[in-house]
Nucleic acid binder design. Structure first.
Lengths: 255, 255
DNA sequence: CGTTACTGTGTATCGCATACGCGGTACTGC
DNA sequence: GCAGTACCGCGTATGCGATACACAGTAACG
Protein backbone atom coordinates (compact mmCIF):
# COMPACT_ATOMS: atom_id res chain seq x y z
CA UNK A 1 0.00 0.00 0.00
CA UNK A 2 1.46 3.27 -1.11
CA UNK A 3 0.96 6.47 0.79
CA UNK A 4 1.82 8.82 -2.05
CA UNK A 5 -0.77 10.13 -4.43
CA UNK A 6 -1.61 8.54 -7.75
CA UNK A 7 0.56 10.94 -9.66
CA UNK A 8 3.51 9.18 -8.17
CA UNK A 9 3.05 5.97 -10.09
CA UNK A 10 6.33 4.20 -9.77
CA UNK A 11 9.29 5.72 -11.46
CA UNK A 12 8.05 7.80 -14.33
CA UNK A 13 10.86 10.01 -15.57
CA UNK A 14 10.80 13.28 -13.73
CA UNK A 15 10.50 15.47 -16.79
CA UNK A 16 7.62 13.43 -18.09
CA UNK A 17 5.75 13.88 -14.86
CA UNK A 18 6.46 17.59 -14.90
CA UNK A 19 5.25 17.98 -18.43
CA UNK A 20 2.01 16.16 -17.74
CA UNK A 21 1.40 18.31 -14.71
CA UNK A 22 1.54 15.42 -12.30
CA UNK A 23 3.74 15.84 -9.23
CA UNK A 24 2.36 18.60 -7.10
CA UNK A 25 4.31 20.98 -4.98
CA UNK A 26 4.23 20.49 -1.25
CA UNK A 27 3.77 24.17 -0.46
CA UNK A 28 6.57 24.25 1.99
CA UNK A 29 9.25 26.68 0.99
CA UNK A 30 9.06 30.20 -0.38
CA UNK A 31 6.70 30.92 -3.24
CA UNK A 32 8.10 30.22 -6.65
CA UNK A 33 8.81 33.25 -8.73
CA UNK A 34 9.11 31.41 -12.00
CA UNK A 35 7.06 28.74 -13.67
CA UNK A 36 7.97 25.81 -15.84
CA UNK A 37 5.77 27.19 -18.56
CA UNK A 38 7.46 30.56 -18.41
CA UNK A 39 10.88 29.01 -18.63
CA UNK A 40 9.95 26.91 -21.60
CA UNK A 41 8.48 29.95 -23.29
CA UNK A 42 11.63 31.90 -22.62
CA UNK A 43 13.64 29.08 -24.15
CA UNK A 44 11.41 29.07 -27.19
CA UNK A 45 11.82 32.82 -27.53
CA UNK A 46 15.59 32.52 -27.42
CA UNK A 47 15.63 29.68 -29.92
CA UNK A 48 13.29 31.46 -32.29
CA UNK A 49 15.22 34.69 -32.14
CA UNK A 50 18.80 33.47 -32.09
CA UNK A 51 18.78 29.82 -33.02
CA UNK A 52 19.51 26.63 -31.17
CA UNK A 53 23.18 27.40 -30.63
CA UNK A 54 22.26 30.47 -28.62
CA UNK A 55 19.91 28.50 -26.44
CA UNK A 56 22.07 28.13 -23.36
CA UNK A 57 20.87 27.89 -19.81
CA UNK A 58 22.28 31.29 -18.96
CA UNK A 59 20.71 32.89 -22.00
CA UNK A 60 17.34 31.38 -21.18
CA UNK A 61 17.69 32.48 -17.58
CA UNK A 62 18.38 36.04 -18.64
CA UNK A 63 15.33 35.93 -20.88
CA UNK A 64 13.22 34.64 -18.03
CA UNK A 65 14.59 37.24 -15.65
CA UNK A 66 16.32 34.89 -13.28
CA UNK A 67 19.74 33.52 -12.53
CA UNK A 68 21.11 30.56 -14.41
CA UNK A 69 20.89 28.18 -11.52
CA UNK A 70 17.32 29.07 -10.73
CA UNK A 71 16.29 27.11 -13.81
CA UNK A 72 17.54 23.93 -12.23
CA UNK A 73 14.80 24.18 -9.63
CA UNK A 74 12.38 23.58 -12.51
CA UNK A 75 14.19 21.26 -14.90
CA UNK A 76 16.70 18.55 -14.18
CA UNK A 77 18.97 19.27 -17.11
CA UNK A 78 19.23 21.17 -20.33
CA UNK A 79 18.21 18.08 -22.25
CA UNK A 80 15.01 17.91 -20.32
CA UNK A 81 14.35 21.53 -21.05
CA UNK A 82 14.86 20.86 -24.74
CA UNK A 83 12.40 18.01 -24.60
CA UNK A 84 9.87 20.36 -23.10
CA UNK A 85 10.63 22.94 -25.73
CA UNK A 86 9.94 20.41 -28.45
CA UNK A 87 6.60 19.57 -26.97
CA UNK A 88 5.72 23.21 -26.59
CA UNK A 89 6.50 23.91 -30.23
CA UNK A 90 4.56 20.90 -31.39
CA UNK A 91 1.45 22.32 -29.84
CA UNK A 92 -1.87 20.62 -30.07
CA UNK A 93 -2.52 18.34 -32.99
CA UNK A 94 -5.15 19.23 -35.56
CA UNK A 95 -8.64 18.10 -34.69
CA UNK A 96 -10.21 15.15 -36.44
CA UNK A 97 -11.02 15.67 -40.12
CA UNK A 98 -14.55 16.09 -41.34
CA UNK A 99 -16.46 12.85 -41.08
CA UNK A 100 -16.44 11.03 -44.34
CA UNK A 101 -12.93 12.10 -45.18
CA UNK A 102 -10.91 9.21 -46.53
CA UNK A 103 -7.81 8.03 -44.73
CA UNK A 104 -5.59 9.24 -47.51
CA UNK A 105 -6.75 12.79 -47.37
CA UNK A 106 -6.78 12.68 -43.60
CA UNK A 107 -3.19 11.49 -43.40
CA UNK A 108 -2.11 13.97 -46.00
CA UNK A 109 -3.65 16.75 -44.01
CA UNK A 110 -1.97 15.45 -40.89
CA UNK A 111 1.42 15.50 -42.56
CA UNK A 112 0.79 19.01 -43.83
CA UNK A 113 -0.10 20.16 -40.35
CA UNK A 114 3.12 18.70 -39.01
CA UNK A 115 5.01 20.31 -41.84
CA UNK A 116 3.48 23.62 -40.86
CA UNK A 117 4.85 23.22 -37.36
CA UNK A 118 8.34 22.52 -38.59
CA UNK A 119 8.13 25.43 -40.99
CA UNK A 120 7.38 27.77 -38.17
CA UNK A 121 10.25 26.50 -36.04
CA UNK A 122 12.98 25.24 -38.32
CA UNK A 123 15.65 25.78 -35.69
CA UNK A 124 14.04 23.18 -33.47
CA UNK A 125 14.65 20.44 -36.01
CA UNK A 126 18.21 20.36 -34.75
CA UNK A 127 17.15 19.27 -31.30
CA UNK A 128 18.05 15.59 -31.08
CA UNK A 129 15.10 13.34 -30.42
CA UNK A 130 16.02 10.85 -27.78
CA UNK A 131 13.24 8.38 -27.42
CA UNK A 132 9.69 7.43 -28.26
CA UNK A 133 6.97 10.02 -27.73
CA UNK A 134 6.14 10.55 -24.08
CA UNK A 135 5.35 14.24 -23.80
CA UNK A 136 1.74 15.40 -23.77
CA UNK A 137 1.48 17.07 -27.14
CA UNK A 138 3.62 14.43 -28.72
CA UNK A 139 1.34 11.71 -27.45
CA UNK A 140 -1.65 13.75 -28.57
CA UNK A 141 -0.22 13.96 -32.08
CA UNK A 142 0.28 10.24 -31.99
CA UNK A 143 -3.31 9.75 -30.99
CA UNK A 144 -4.47 12.08 -33.74
CA UNK A 145 -2.37 10.27 -36.32
CA UNK A 146 -3.71 6.88 -35.33
CA UNK A 147 -7.20 8.31 -35.40
CA UNK A 148 -6.80 9.30 -39.02
CA UNK A 149 -5.68 5.83 -39.98
CA UNK A 150 -8.86 4.18 -38.89
CA UNK A 151 -10.21 3.30 -42.30
CA UNK A 152 -7.03 1.57 -43.38
CA UNK A 153 -7.70 -1.76 -41.80
CA UNK A 154 -4.21 -2.29 -40.48
CA UNK A 155 -3.22 -4.10 -37.33
CA UNK A 156 -1.70 -2.26 -34.41
CA UNK A 157 1.95 -2.84 -35.20
CA UNK A 158 1.56 -1.84 -38.79
CA UNK A 159 -0.31 1.29 -37.86
CA UNK A 160 2.50 2.41 -35.61
CA UNK A 161 5.01 1.63 -38.29
CA UNK A 162 3.13 3.61 -40.89
CA UNK A 163 2.68 6.55 -38.59
CA UNK A 164 6.38 6.70 -37.91
CA UNK A 165 6.99 6.60 -41.60
CA UNK A 166 4.83 9.64 -42.19
CA UNK A 167 6.36 11.48 -39.26
CA UNK A 168 9.82 10.60 -40.40
CA UNK A 169 9.16 11.81 -43.88
CA UNK A 170 7.96 15.18 -42.68
CA UNK A 171 10.86 15.54 -40.31
CA UNK A 172 13.49 14.65 -42.83
CA UNK A 173 12.15 16.78 -45.64
CA UNK A 174 11.68 19.69 -43.30
CA UNK A 175 15.25 19.40 -42.20
CA UNK A 176 16.46 19.45 -45.76
CA UNK A 177 14.39 22.49 -46.58
CA UNK A 178 15.52 24.25 -43.44
CA UNK A 179 19.15 23.56 -44.31
CA UNK A 180 18.61 24.95 -47.76
CA UNK A 181 17.04 28.08 -46.44
CA UNK A 182 19.65 28.66 -43.81
CA UNK A 183 22.27 28.20 -46.51
CA UNK A 184 20.99 31.04 -48.58
CA UNK A 185 20.20 33.15 -45.61
CA UNK A 186 23.84 32.80 -44.64
CA UNK A 187 25.10 33.49 -48.13
CA UNK A 188 22.78 36.42 -48.46
CA UNK A 189 21.80 35.22 -51.89
CA UNK A 190 18.61 33.82 -53.31
CA UNK A 191 17.58 30.21 -53.10
CA UNK A 192 18.15 29.90 -56.81
CA UNK A 193 21.69 31.09 -56.33
CA UNK A 194 22.28 28.34 -53.80
CA UNK A 195 21.11 25.76 -56.30
CA UNK A 196 23.32 27.29 -58.95
CA UNK A 197 26.28 27.31 -56.59
CA UNK A 198 25.74 23.68 -55.75
CA UNK A 199 25.50 22.84 -59.41
CA UNK A 200 28.76 24.62 -60.05
CA UNK A 201 30.37 22.87 -57.13
CA UNK A 202 29.32 19.47 -58.40
CA UNK A 203 30.40 20.42 -61.88
CA UNK A 204 33.83 21.43 -60.65
CA UNK A 205 34.27 18.27 -58.64
CA UNK A 206 33.10 15.86 -61.30
CA UNK A 207 34.66 17.67 -64.22
CA UNK A 208 36.16 15.29 -66.75
CA UNK A 209 35.62 12.46 -64.36
CA UNK A 210 34.29 9.31 -65.89
CA UNK A 211 33.20 7.97 -62.56
CA UNK A 212 30.19 10.27 -62.50
CA UNK A 213 28.20 9.91 -65.70
CA UNK A 214 24.83 10.14 -63.99
CA UNK A 215 25.74 13.29 -62.16
CA UNK A 216 27.09 14.86 -65.26
CA UNK A 217 23.87 14.03 -67.05
CA UNK A 218 22.05 15.64 -64.17
CA UNK A 219 24.12 18.77 -64.55
CA UNK A 220 23.47 18.88 -68.26
CA UNK A 221 19.77 18.79 -67.62
CA UNK A 222 20.23 22.23 -66.07
CA UNK A 223 18.04 21.50 -63.10
CA UNK A 224 20.44 23.37 -60.87
CA UNK A 225 21.08 26.20 -63.28
CA UNK A 226 17.47 26.69 -64.28
CA UNK A 227 15.31 25.52 -61.45
CA UNK A 228 11.76 25.10 -62.64
CA UNK A 229 8.80 26.58 -60.90
CA UNK A 230 8.90 23.90 -58.24
CA UNK A 231 9.14 25.29 -54.75
CA UNK A 232 10.47 23.16 -51.93
CA UNK A 233 6.89 22.84 -50.81
CA UNK A 234 5.95 21.32 -54.14
CA UNK A 235 8.73 18.81 -53.71
CA UNK A 236 7.50 18.08 -50.24
CA UNK A 237 3.98 17.43 -51.48
CA UNK A 238 5.24 15.32 -54.32
CA UNK A 239 7.16 13.01 -52.04
CA UNK A 240 4.27 12.85 -49.65
CA UNK A 241 1.88 11.76 -52.36
CA UNK A 242 4.38 9.17 -53.40
CA UNK A 243 4.52 7.85 -49.86
CA UNK A 244 0.74 7.76 -49.71
CA UNK A 245 0.69 5.80 -52.95
CA UNK A 246 2.82 3.24 -51.20
CA UNK A 247 0.41 3.08 -48.31
CA UNK A 248 -2.47 2.68 -50.70
CA UNK A 249 -0.79 -0.35 -52.18
CA UNK A 250 -0.39 -1.67 -48.67
CA UNK A 251 -4.04 -1.20 -47.88
CA UNK A 252 -5.16 -2.74 -51.15
CA UNK A 253 -2.99 -5.69 -50.39
CA UNK A 254 -4.91 -5.94 -47.13
CA UNK A 255 -2.17 -5.09 -44.62
CA UNK B 1 44.52 34.20 -66.94
CA UNK B 2 45.14 32.42 -63.71
CA UNK B 3 48.54 31.36 -62.53
CA UNK B 4 47.39 28.84 -59.96
CA UNK B 5 46.81 25.24 -60.85
CA UNK B 6 43.48 23.79 -61.82
CA UNK B 7 42.81 22.49 -58.36
CA UNK B 8 42.32 26.03 -57.27
CA UNK B 9 39.07 26.56 -59.14
CA UNK B 10 37.63 29.63 -57.57
CA UNK B 11 36.40 29.39 -54.07
CA UNK B 12 35.55 25.81 -53.35
CA UNK B 13 35.11 25.32 -49.61
CA UNK B 14 38.42 24.43 -48.07
CA UNK B 15 37.30 21.17 -46.53
CA UNK B 16 35.80 20.02 -49.80
CA UNK B 17 39.07 20.59 -51.58
CA UNK B 18 40.95 18.78 -48.86
CA UNK B 19 38.63 15.79 -49.01
CA UNK B 20 38.93 15.50 -52.75
CA UNK B 21 42.68 15.66 -52.51
CA UNK B 22 42.96 18.85 -54.50
CA UNK B 23 45.11 21.61 -53.03
CA UNK B 24 48.70 20.49 -52.87
CA UNK B 25 51.24 21.48 -50.30
CA UNK B 26 53.96 23.88 -51.27
CA UNK B 27 56.72 21.97 -49.55
CA UNK B 28 58.05 24.91 -47.67
CA UNK B 29 57.99 24.29 -43.96
CA UNK B 30 58.92 21.26 -41.90
CA UNK B 31 57.62 17.86 -42.93
CA UNK B 32 54.19 17.03 -41.63
CA UNK B 33 54.06 14.39 -39.00
CA UNK B 34 50.34 13.74 -39.25
CA UNK B 35 48.01 13.21 -42.14
CA UNK B 36 44.41 14.18 -42.75
CA UNK B 37 43.56 10.56 -43.25
CA UNK B 38 45.16 9.57 -39.98
CA UNK B 39 43.31 12.25 -38.09
CA UNK B 40 39.99 11.25 -39.56
CA UNK B 41 40.71 7.65 -38.70
CA UNK B 42 41.57 8.61 -35.15
CA UNK B 43 38.31 10.50 -34.92
CA UNK B 44 36.43 7.49 -36.20
CA UNK B 45 38.15 5.29 -33.66
CA UNK B 46 37.16 7.59 -30.83
CA UNK B 47 33.59 7.85 -32.03
CA UNK B 48 33.26 4.13 -32.47
CA UNK B 49 34.72 3.35 -29.09
CA UNK B 50 33.24 6.07 -26.93
CA UNK B 51 30.45 7.70 -28.89
CA UNK B 52 29.97 11.08 -30.44
CA UNK B 53 29.97 12.93 -27.15
CA UNK B 54 33.49 11.80 -26.45
CA UNK B 55 34.67 12.95 -29.83
CA UNK B 56 36.40 16.16 -28.83
CA UNK B 57 39.35 17.73 -30.52
CA UNK B 58 41.61 16.99 -27.59
CA UNK B 59 40.47 13.39 -27.43
CA UNK B 60 41.09 12.90 -31.12
CA UNK B 61 44.47 14.55 -30.82
CA UNK B 62 45.47 12.21 -28.05
CA UNK B 63 44.36 9.28 -30.17
CA UNK B 64 46.39 10.56 -33.08
CA UNK B 65 49.40 11.17 -30.88
CA UNK B 66 49.57 14.91 -31.25
CA UNK B 67 48.58 18.06 -29.43
CA UNK B 68 45.09 19.43 -29.72
CA UNK B 69 46.07 22.40 -31.75
CA UNK B 70 48.03 20.37 -34.24
CA UNK B 71 44.74 19.18 -35.68
CA UNK B 72 43.92 22.69 -36.77
CA UNK B 73 46.78 22.54 -39.23
CA UNK B 74 44.76 19.91 -41.04
CA UNK B 75 41.12 20.87 -40.55
CA UNK B 76 39.57 24.28 -40.22
CA UNK B 77 37.13 23.38 -37.49
CA UNK B 78 35.58 20.52 -35.65
CA UNK B 79 32.57 20.69 -37.91
CA UNK B 80 34.76 20.14 -40.91
CA UNK B 81 36.36 17.20 -39.22
CA UNK B 82 32.94 15.72 -38.58
CA UNK B 83 32.04 16.15 -42.22
CA UNK B 84 35.16 14.22 -43.14
CA UNK B 85 34.32 11.55 -40.60
CA UNK B 86 30.90 11.10 -42.14
CA UNK B 87 32.40 10.63 -45.55
CA UNK B 88 34.95 8.19 -44.22
CA UNK B 89 32.27 6.08 -42.59
CA UNK B 90 30.12 6.15 -45.67
CA UNK B 91 32.86 4.47 -47.60
CA UNK B 92 32.50 3.49 -51.19
CA UNK B 93 29.05 2.81 -52.54
CA UNK B 94 28.12 -0.67 -53.70
CA UNK B 95 28.99 -1.42 -57.29
CA UNK B 96 26.31 -1.55 -59.94
CA UNK B 97 23.88 -4.45 -59.66
CA UNK B 98 23.94 -7.36 -62.04
CA UNK B 99 22.78 -6.35 -65.47
CA UNK B 100 19.15 -7.16 -65.93
CA UNK B 101 18.27 -6.32 -62.37
CA UNK B 102 15.09 -4.25 -62.21
CA UNK B 103 15.17 -0.78 -60.70
CA UNK B 104 13.11 -1.88 -57.77
CA UNK B 105 15.46 -4.57 -56.64
CA UNK B 106 18.41 -2.34 -57.39
CA UNK B 107 17.07 0.48 -55.25
CA UNK B 108 16.13 -1.91 -52.51
CA UNK B 109 19.62 -3.28 -52.48
CA UNK B 110 20.99 0.25 -52.40
CA UNK B 111 18.91 1.12 -49.38
CA UNK B 112 20.00 -2.06 -47.66
CA UNK B 113 23.63 -1.22 -48.29
CA UNK B 114 23.14 2.21 -46.79
CA UNK B 115 21.33 0.65 -43.88
CA UNK B 116 24.31 -1.60 -43.35
CA UNK B 117 26.58 1.43 -43.09
CA UNK B 118 24.38 3.06 -40.49
CA UNK B 119 24.14 -0.17 -38.58
CA UNK B 120 27.87 -0.36 -38.29
CA UNK B 121 28.17 3.23 -37.11
CA UNK B 122 25.02 4.17 -35.27
CA UNK B 123 26.80 6.85 -33.25
CA UNK B 124 27.50 8.79 -36.42
CA UNK B 125 23.81 9.29 -37.09
CA UNK B 126 23.92 12.05 -34.51
CA UNK B 127 26.30 14.12 -36.56
CA UNK B 128 24.22 16.93 -38.00
CA UNK B 129 24.20 17.05 -41.78
CA UNK B 130 24.68 20.59 -42.91
CA UNK B 131 24.25 20.71 -46.63
CA UNK B 132 23.89 18.83 -49.87
CA UNK B 133 26.39 16.07 -50.64
CA UNK B 134 29.77 17.42 -51.62
CA UNK B 135 32.26 14.95 -50.17
CA UNK B 136 33.77 12.27 -52.38
CA UNK B 137 32.07 9.18 -51.05
CA UNK B 138 28.83 11.01 -50.61
CA UNK B 139 28.86 12.11 -54.21
CA UNK B 140 29.80 8.59 -55.24
CA UNK B 141 26.78 7.22 -53.38
CA UNK B 142 24.66 9.77 -55.14
CA UNK B 143 26.03 8.64 -58.44
CA UNK B 144 25.41 5.02 -57.58
CA UNK B 145 21.86 5.77 -56.50
CA UNK B 146 21.05 7.62 -59.68
CA UNK B 147 22.60 4.80 -61.65
CA UNK B 148 20.19 2.33 -60.13
CA UNK B 149 17.22 4.46 -61.08
CA UNK B 150 17.90 4.32 -64.78
CA UNK B 151 15.02 2.13 -65.76
CA UNK B 152 12.45 4.29 -64.04
CA UNK B 153 11.99 6.82 -66.77
CA UNK B 154 11.97 9.84 -64.52
CA UNK B 155 13.22 13.30 -65.28
CA UNK B 156 16.23 14.70 -63.53
CA UNK B 157 14.46 16.63 -60.81
CA UNK B 158 12.21 13.74 -59.92
CA UNK B 159 15.15 11.38 -59.76
CA UNK B 160 16.92 13.57 -57.26
CA UNK B 161 13.76 13.88 -55.26
CA UNK B 162 13.21 10.14 -55.17
CA UNK B 163 16.80 9.46 -54.22
CA UNK B 164 16.55 11.83 -51.29
CA UNK B 165 13.42 10.09 -50.25
CA UNK B 166 15.14 6.73 -50.11
CA UNK B 167 18.15 8.17 -48.32
CA UNK B 168 15.95 9.97 -45.87
CA UNK B 169 14.00 6.85 -45.11
CA UNK B 170 17.11 4.87 -44.32
CA UNK B 171 18.55 7.63 -42.20
CA UNK B 172 15.43 8.16 -40.19
CA UNK B 173 14.67 4.52 -39.55
CA UNK B 174 18.26 3.88 -38.65
CA UNK B 175 18.15 6.68 -36.15
CA UNK B 176 15.06 5.24 -34.55
CA UNK B 177 16.57 1.81 -34.31
CA UNK B 178 19.80 3.20 -32.92
CA UNK B 179 17.87 5.13 -30.29
CA UNK B 180 16.02 2.02 -29.32
CA UNK B 181 19.18 0.03 -28.98
CA UNK B 182 20.99 2.66 -27.00
CA UNK B 183 17.97 2.84 -24.74
CA UNK B 184 18.18 -0.75 -23.76
CA UNK B 185 21.91 -0.75 -23.68
CA UNK B 186 21.66 2.05 -21.15
CA UNK B 187 18.96 0.33 -19.16
CA UNK B 188 20.87 -2.91 -19.25
CA UNK B 189 17.68 -4.72 -20.12
CA UNK B 190 16.50 -6.47 -23.22
CA UNK B 191 14.89 -4.78 -26.16
CA UNK B 192 11.63 -6.39 -25.23
CA UNK B 193 11.85 -4.86 -21.83
CA UNK B 194 12.22 -1.43 -23.37
CA UNK B 195 9.05 -1.98 -25.37
CA UNK B 196 7.27 -3.17 -22.28
CA UNK B 197 8.49 -0.19 -20.32
CA UNK B 198 7.28 2.16 -23.00
CA UNK B 199 3.93 0.45 -23.05
CA UNK B 200 3.65 0.82 -19.31
CA UNK B 201 4.65 4.45 -19.53
CA UNK B 202 1.98 5.15 -22.11
CA UNK B 203 -0.52 3.18 -20.11
CA UNK B 204 0.22 5.20 -16.99
CA UNK B 205 -0.04 8.49 -18.82
CA UNK B 206 -3.23 7.75 -20.70
CA UNK B 207 -4.92 5.86 -17.92
CA UNK B 208 -8.61 6.65 -17.68
CA UNK B 209 -8.13 9.43 -20.14
CA UNK B 210 -10.82 9.70 -22.76
CA UNK B 211 -8.64 11.82 -24.96
CA UNK B 212 -6.61 8.79 -26.04
CA UNK B 213 -8.91 6.04 -27.29
CA UNK B 214 -6.62 4.99 -30.13
CA UNK B 215 -3.61 4.68 -27.90
CA UNK B 216 -5.55 2.70 -25.36
CA UNK B 217 -6.69 0.39 -28.13
CA UNK B 218 -3.07 0.07 -29.14
CA UNK B 219 -2.12 -0.88 -25.62
CA UNK B 220 -4.87 -3.42 -25.42
CA UNK B 221 -3.56 -5.08 -28.55
CA UNK B 222 -0.52 -5.97 -26.44
CA UNK B 223 1.97 -5.05 -29.11
CA UNK B 224 4.23 -3.55 -26.50
CA UNK B 225 3.72 -6.27 -23.96
CA UNK B 226 4.03 -9.15 -26.39
CA UNK B 227 6.14 -8.04 -29.28
CA UNK B 228 5.80 -10.44 -32.15
CA UNK B 229 8.71 -11.98 -33.94
CA UNK B 230 9.33 -8.79 -35.87
CA UNK B 231 12.83 -7.51 -35.48
CA UNK B 232 13.59 -3.87 -36.12
CA UNK B 233 15.15 -5.01 -39.36
CA UNK B 234 11.85 -6.54 -40.42
CA UNK B 235 10.16 -3.24 -39.73
CA UNK B 236 12.82 -1.50 -41.74
CA UNK B 237 12.28 -3.77 -44.70
CA UNK B 238 8.54 -3.46 -44.43
CA UNK B 239 8.64 0.33 -44.63
CA UNK B 240 11.12 0.19 -47.43
CA UNK B 241 8.90 -2.05 -49.51
CA UNK B 242 6.05 0.29 -48.82
CA UNK B 243 8.11 3.19 -50.07
CA UNK B 244 9.05 1.22 -53.18
CA UNK B 245 5.39 0.52 -53.79
CA UNK B 246 4.88 4.23 -53.87
CA UNK B 247 7.65 4.64 -56.39
CA UNK B 248 6.19 1.91 -58.50
CA UNK B 249 2.93 3.80 -58.64
CA UNK B 250 4.90 6.84 -59.68
CA UNK B 251 6.65 4.99 -62.46
CA UNK B 252 3.43 3.41 -63.68
CA UNK B 253 1.90 6.83 -63.80
CA UNK B 254 4.80 7.80 -66.01
CA UNK B 255 6.64 10.28 -63.77
C1' DC C 1 72.86 32.17 -46.22
C1' DG C 2 69.04 35.06 -45.19
C1' DT C 3 64.16 35.00 -46.13
C1' DT C 4 59.95 32.91 -45.95
C1' DA C 5 56.28 29.87 -45.19
C1' DC C 6 54.95 26.40 -42.78
C1' DT C 7 55.35 23.11 -38.76
C1' DG C 8 53.85 21.38 -33.89
C1' DT C 9 52.80 23.19 -29.53
C1' DG C 10 51.82 25.79 -25.00
C1' DT C 11 49.12 29.20 -23.23
C1' DA C 12 45.00 31.89 -22.80
C1' DT C 13 40.20 33.21 -23.52
C1' DC C 14 35.69 32.52 -23.33
C1' DG C 15 31.38 30.07 -22.87
C1' DC C 16 29.20 26.13 -21.42
C1' DA C 17 26.54 22.72 -18.08
C1' DT C 18 26.18 21.83 -13.72
C1' DA C 19 27.61 20.51 -8.42
C1' DC C 20 27.39 22.67 -4.06
C1' DG C 21 26.34 25.46 -0.28
C1' DC C 22 24.39 29.68 1.53
C1' DG C 23 20.90 32.77 3.61
C1' DG C 24 16.26 33.42 3.46
C1' DT C 25 11.15 31.90 3.39
C1' DA C 26 6.73 29.83 4.27
C1' DC C 27 4.24 26.05 5.62
C1' DT C 28 3.88 22.18 9.42
C1' DG C 29 3.03 20.35 13.92
C1' DC C 30 3.02 21.60 18.51
C1' DG D 1 2.89 31.70 18.52
C1' DC D 2 7.01 29.11 17.49
C1' DA D 3 10.47 25.75 16.28
C1' DG D 4 11.49 22.70 12.62
C1' DT D 5 11.87 21.68 8.00
C1' DA D 6 11.79 21.59 3.16
C1' DC D 7 12.20 24.34 -0.43
C1' DC D 8 13.41 28.89 -2.77
C1' DG D 9 16.78 31.84 -5.72
C1' DC D 10 21.38 32.66 -6.29
C1' DG D 11 26.71 33.17 -6.09
C1' DT D 12 30.56 30.63 -6.61
C1' DA D 13 33.47 27.01 -8.31
C1' DT D 14 34.77 23.18 -11.31
C1' DG D 15 35.95 21.15 -15.31
C1' DC D 16 35.63 20.69 -20.09
C1' DG D 17 34.82 22.34 -24.65
C1' DA D 18 36.46 24.98 -29.18
C1' DT D 19 39.63 27.78 -30.82
C1' DA D 20 42.72 32.45 -31.27
C1' DC D 21 47.40 33.55 -30.94
C1' DA D 22 52.25 33.72 -30.49
C1' DC D 23 56.46 31.20 -30.43
C1' DA D 24 60.46 28.50 -31.70
C1' DG D 25 62.09 25.31 -34.83
C1' DT D 26 62.59 23.66 -39.86
C1' DA D 27 63.03 23.22 -44.76
C1' DA D 28 62.78 24.91 -49.34
C1' DC D 29 63.79 29.13 -52.18
C1' DG D 30 66.35 33.03 -53.83
Amino acid sequence: MRERNESDEGGLPETVELAWGLRERPGKGPRRTLSLKGIVEAAVAVGAAEGLDALSMSRVAREAGASTMALYRYVASKNDLLALVLDELLGEPPGPPDPGTGWREALRDYAMALREVTRRHPWALRIPVTGPPAMPNNVAWMEAGLRRMRGMGLDAGTRLSVLMQVTGYVRYQSTLIADLESAYRAAGTSDRQVAIDYGNLLAALTADDRRFPEIRALLESKIFAEPGDDTPEDDFAFGLDCLLDGLEALVRRGG
